[in-house]
């Protein structure tokens, strides 16, 4: 669904993404991992259509350059790494913005959609709270509810798979909510949508992701199904420290144990 060839992005004149070629499929959860500053957020923002790029990048068979913000808003949602509100909106109001951005013409049951989205992220009862007064994790989940309202179904009515972009969706969440939110993302992919998530937690990645893109210094180091990519030498090369990949005995899911810095 997403094809990039020789994708290069410069920020303030510095090359941050250096000639990436990637393919991302609908129906799969693709994780992006790599050290700080390796360009994960930049790649996500490029896929969101925020940044100018050189090279080729097409989504849904069309170059991203030719897609207007309004049409993009109907097909892809983005959860930023964190986001503040300049004014004291209620949680319900903020989630409602997503509804307006995504699907026009179903105002009557807006309240119902908002309530359902809040329920999915475990925030029922928060509808009339001031967003600015929520904790970091609660804000993150409220934003996810907004995004889920914007692209409610993983596949649009015309059969186009939708794209969900998540930048460290579980970084500020407690362990139970990490599992719940990852399960939500997993569900979106299983129902035919495409999910791209920037992840720091390799074990959650192994549990929930289908594919893994490993980045370092703005370049792609390895890409493929999680189980093939997640090996000691690859991870050690990417992160520059000693790691041990094992398998959970009863399920065979890999898990990563940090060993030492060098």
């Amino acid at each position: 669904m997403i094809h990039a060839r020789d994708l290069t992005v410069c920020l303030s004149g510095r090359p941050v993404l250096k000639g990436l070629s990637i393919g991302i499929e609908a129906g799969r959860l693709t994780a992006i991992a790599g050290p700080n500053g390796s360009g994960k957020s930049t790649l996500l923002r490029t896929l969101a259509g925020e940044l100018r790029y050189d090279g080729e990048l097409s989504i849904w068979g069309t170059s991203l350059r030719n897609q207007s913000p309004a049409v993009l808003a109907l097909r892809r949602g983005v959860l930023p790494q964190s986001s503040e509100s300049a004014f004291p909106f209620t949680v319900a109001e903020i989630v409602g913005f997503g509804l307006e951005a995504g699907a026009r013409g179903r105002r009557e049951d807006a309240g119902l959609h908002v309530a359902r989205a809040l329920d999915r992220v475990g925030l029922s009862g928060f509808a009339h709270r001031n967003y600015q007064e929520l904790s970091g994790g609660e804000q993150q989940r409220a934003q996810l509810a907004r995004v889920l309202c914007q692209i409610p179904e993983p596949v649009a009515a015309d059969g186009t798979p939708r794209l969900l972009l998540l930048d460290e969706p579980v970084a500020s969440l407690d362990i139970r909510h990490q599992l719940e939110i990852m399960a939500l993302a997993r569900d979106f992919a299983s129902k035919g949508g495409a999910v791209v998530a920037v992840m720091h937690d390799l074990n959650l990645t192994a549990l929930f992701a289908d594919d893994l893109l490993l980045m370092r210094d703005g370049r792609l180091v390895a890409t493929g199904p999680v189980r093939e990519v997640m090996t000691d030498p690859v991870l050690e090369k990417v992160y520059g420290c000693r790691l041990r990949v094992n398998a959970v005995p009863e399920r065979g899911v890999p898990f990563v144990l940090a060993q030492s810095v060098a």
Binding site: A70, A73, P80, F89, F97, E100
Partner: peptide, 20 residues
């Protein structure tokens, strides 16, 4: 009004929500 509401969440978020 709709654009300014979205902008309260930041320029990037407003863009993601389809605001020019």
């Amino acid at each position: 009004a709709r654009g300014l509401n979205a902008l309260a969440l930041g320029e990037a978020a407003a863009f993601h929500m389809g605001i020019r």
